[in-house]
Simulated assay, not measured.
Amino acid sequence: MSLRLAIFDVDGTLVDSQAAIVAAMEGAFGGAGLPVPSRAAILSIVGLSLDHAMLRLVPEAEATTRAGLVDGYKATYHANRLAQGAAHSPLFPGAREMLEALNAQPDTLLAVATGKSRRGLDALIEAHGLEQLFISRQVADDHPSKPHPSMIEAALADAGVGPAEAVMIGDTTYDMDMARAAGVPGLGVGWGYHPVEALAPTARRVIAGMDDLVPALEDIWKDPT
């Protein structure tokens, strides 16, 4: 039996974390005495590693200032997560059922490739009781920021599958560009933080709802080219 691998982004794909991310950015920028970027600007950088995100948001700032913003973001995010638990970043409706359906398939493996830190991802997975689902968890601590293909390449190695047997599922152009760089089909989701029209040029397919995800994966695996 040949194996296949579904690699998931997290924020905007599996969990609706926009309120948590915006609140952490507000805490970071407010704590530094800087104007808070717009909600649209903040959501546009979801998926990037924090250092790259801050560079996009305040390119004119000194490196020490951006480093302070990263620390402020982490501190605010961590405090809010401890206070709110699983409600801090709720799963999108149907996400748990979709993951469990894929996990029940004997030839399908699941992985994560996210801009989150190891601590943040592990805490989120534990909060939602998803510890047993993912064979590979790739995080920003260990890799260059998306869209560099390093996270996908590591997930492929962990699973022992080739690019043609894998699909990268995500809601941002960074996910789709990362998939293309790794030679893996990209499946865009339309409920996240980047507009569908931005995903379409590089995604193999873009789906509108969670119920469409498993059938779309089957279609791609039937015809990986």
Rank of each mutant, 00 (worst) to 15 (best):
L5V: 06
A6M: 04
V10E: 01
S17T: 07
Q18Y: 11
Q18G: 02
A19F: 03
V22H: 11
V22R: 08
A24F: 06
G27Q: 02
G27S: 14
F29I: 00
G31C: 04
G31N: 06
V36A: 05
I42W: 12
L48I: 00
L50I: 06
L50S: 12
H52D: 14
A53E: 03
R56G: 02
R56M: 13
V58L: 13
A61K: 00
A63N: 00
T64Y: 00
T64K: 06
T65V: 15
A67M: 10
L69A: 04
L69R: 03
V70F: 07
G72P: 10
K74C: 10
A75P: 00
T76R: 15
Y77A: 07
N80K: 03
R81F: 14
L82K: 13
A87S: 13
S89V: 01
L91I: 12
F92G: 12
R96A: 12
R96V: 07
E97R: 04
M98E: 07
M98W: 06
L99D: 07
E100N: 13
D107M: 07
L109T: 00
K116I: 04
K116Y: 04
S117H: 01
L121K: 05
I125C: 06
H128D: 10
H128V: 05
E131P: 02
Q132K: 14
L133Y: 12
I135G: 15
R137E: 05
R137P: 02
D141V: 11
H143S: 12
S145Y: 00
K146H: 01
S150W: 02
A157N: 12
D158W: 05
D158N: 06
A159M: 10
G160T: 08
V161I: 09
V167W: 00
V167F: 01
V167P: 02
D171W: 05
T172W: 09
Y174Q: 09
Y174L: 11
D175R: 03
M178D: 07
R180N: 00
G186C: 09
L187T: 04
G188A: 08
G190C: 05
W191V: 09
G192V: 07
Y193K: 08
E197Y: 04
L199G: 12
A200G: 00
T202A: 13
R204Y: 03
R204M: 08
V206F: 09
V206W: 09
I207A: 03
A208F: 03
M210K: 14
D212G: 15
I220E: 11
W221H: 05
W221P: 11
T225I: 02
T225P: 00
